[in-house]
């Protein structure tokens, strides 16, 4: 189990580094898809099957396809990445990112990490009811308002995307 986790963790980091370093954006995108698959697998190991499924379906399936679609639409004339120049700003940015990693890692691994009280859904309950049923129940009870709003947001995003991307005919 642990071994499988480390394999997937290593693969996902590898994919992420691919996003960062691959010259061709299409390659970057494909490498990101790999990362998302790995993360989906880790979600399964964390007993979050529903999240794993939508991770694969929505992220890897829909969103990344959209990215690839746009990339291919645009890079026919304008392929390849732009050459990186290592300016002072970029070096500073790299250092800052590392600093942030150190700090977050320090925060996560701290001995006195205060996590607050435990919730009411231990693993046994989740396995008994099923995580999808539980999420569905919560979505339609406690989070009904957020759920409705997110639906409106999606609608707005669809309309907005059409309006923005539409060619303007004179």
């Amino acid at each position: 189990m642990l071994i499988i986790f480390y394999i997937f963790a290593a693969l996902s980091v590898f994919g992420a580094l691919g996003v960062l370093f691959l010259r061709n954006p299409i390659h970057s995108a494909l490498s990101l898809v790999g990362t998302f698959f790995c993360l989906g697998a880790i979600y399964v190991m964390l007993n979050a099957e529903f999240v794993a499924v939508i991770q694969v379906l929505v992220y890897a399936g829909a969103i990344m396809v959209l990215f690839l679609f746009v990339l291919m639409l645009l890079s026919s004339k304008d392929s390849g990445d732009y050459v990186n120049k290592w300016t002072i700003g970029k070096i500073l940015a790299g250092l800052l990112s590392l600093g942030i990693f150190v700090q977050i890692a320090g925060l996560f691994t701290a001995e006195n990490l205060e996590l607050g009280p435990k919730g009411t859904y231990p693993l046994e309950v989740v396995e008994e009811v099923g995580s999808i049923a539980l999420i569905g129940r919560l979505l339609f009870t406690d989070y009904i308002l957020a759920f409705e709003i997110i639906a409106v947001l999606l609608l707005v995003a669809v309309i907005g995307a059409v309006v923005i991307a539409k060619r303007r005919f004179q």
């Binding site: 600093g99 942030i100 977050i104």
Partner: peptide, 11 residues
């Protein structure tokens, strides 16, 4: 970059 700097300082 400035945004990240701010995050860094807050952290």
């Amino acid at each position: 970059l400035i945004f990240i700097l701010g995050t860094f300082l807050i952290l």
